[in-house]
Design a protein around this nucleic acid. Structure first.
Length: 260
DNA sequence: ATGGCGGTGGAGCACCGA
């Protein structure tokens, strides 16, 4: 089974890219972030025509997450539990049935958190705490799960081309990175890091200042695997070439193959 | 780099992202 995540930065602007990439990579499950649209304006027909079932949590203008699945979707959780006042569309989780049992997949768009010193940063940390709580629940239930998405965390200095550029940024704050380590300490596996020793692996390049041309990127889109899923991991890939397409998203797809 | 680009809403330019 192939599972992917991609922050598309407006699914309507990126509908053609999405269709082209789904056709070439053919993921069984694809998590999308930053839809920047509601259910009503989501390009549902084009994606359904490629053989996908779709569940999404939309929002006008900002955020928005979706999961596309070639498998039937048995159950959906919209919104990350733990804060009734959170109205931002940043989390959706589905349950599907595979030949080897049930699998949960979440599409996550963690808050950016900038600028530090505003309410945005504690919102980011609070969101990550709620994500940790959900992972704990799933682990206690011995669920197979994949938490995929834009975490807005640069885990380590080697995950940035120029780490010094990020020291005052929410993505690279010690508190943000500590939440990442907390997720790993629960027993989750960073799919990319566990399958390669390469360090110049990035998933985001800013639109500004020629970041793409200089390969000045950061790795912030991640797939975290439960222990039972990590045991079945076969391979991983970052589809970097998509960043070179005409009018691209600033993020590229990341994908894994698991024996499920 | 104090935000250089790109998307949204809505018809200016403010707000957001990372």
């Amino acid at each position: 089974m192939r599972i992917a995540t991609w922050n598309v930065n407006s699914v309507r602007q990126r509908a053609d890219h999405l269709a082209a990439w789904l056709t070439e990579a053919s993921p069984d499950i694809c998590c999308l972030q930053e839809l920047k649209c509601t259910e009503e304006t989501f390009p549902r027909l084009e994606i359904e025509a490629l053989g996908y079932n779709i569940e999404l949590l939309g929002q006008k203008t900002f955020n928005g997450v979706a999961i596309l699945s070639k498998y039937r979707i048995d159950h959906v959780t919209r919104g990350l539990p733990g804060d009734e006042s959170d109205e931002q569309a940043r989390f959706i989780e589905v349950e599907i049935s595979t030949a080897k049992g049930a699998l949960r997949v979440a599409s996550i768009y963690a808050p950016n958190g900038n600028p530090i010193g505003t309410e945005k940063f504690p919102y980011k940390i609070g969101f990550l705490d709620r994500l940790i709580a959900r992972a704990k629940t799933h682990l206690a239930n011995e669920e197979n799960f994949v938490f995929a998405g834009d975490y807005n965390i640069i885990p380590m200095p080697e995950d940035a081309a120029i780490p010094s550029q990020w020291v005052n940024d929410a993505l690279f704050q010690p508190e943000s990175r500590a939440k990442w380590r907390e997720l790993l300490s629960l027993g989750l596996t960073d799919a990319i890091r566990t399958t390669t020793g390469d360090t110049n692996l990035y998933t985001f390049w800013d639109y500004q200042a020629g970041a793409w041309q200089k390969n000045n990127g950061i790795r912030i889109d991640h797939l975290l695997l439960s222990p039972n899923c990590a045991d079945k991991l076969i391979s991983t890939a970052i589809d970097k070439h998509v960043r070179g397409w005409e009018k691209p998203s600033d993020h590229v797809p990341v994908r894994i193959d698991v024996e499920l």
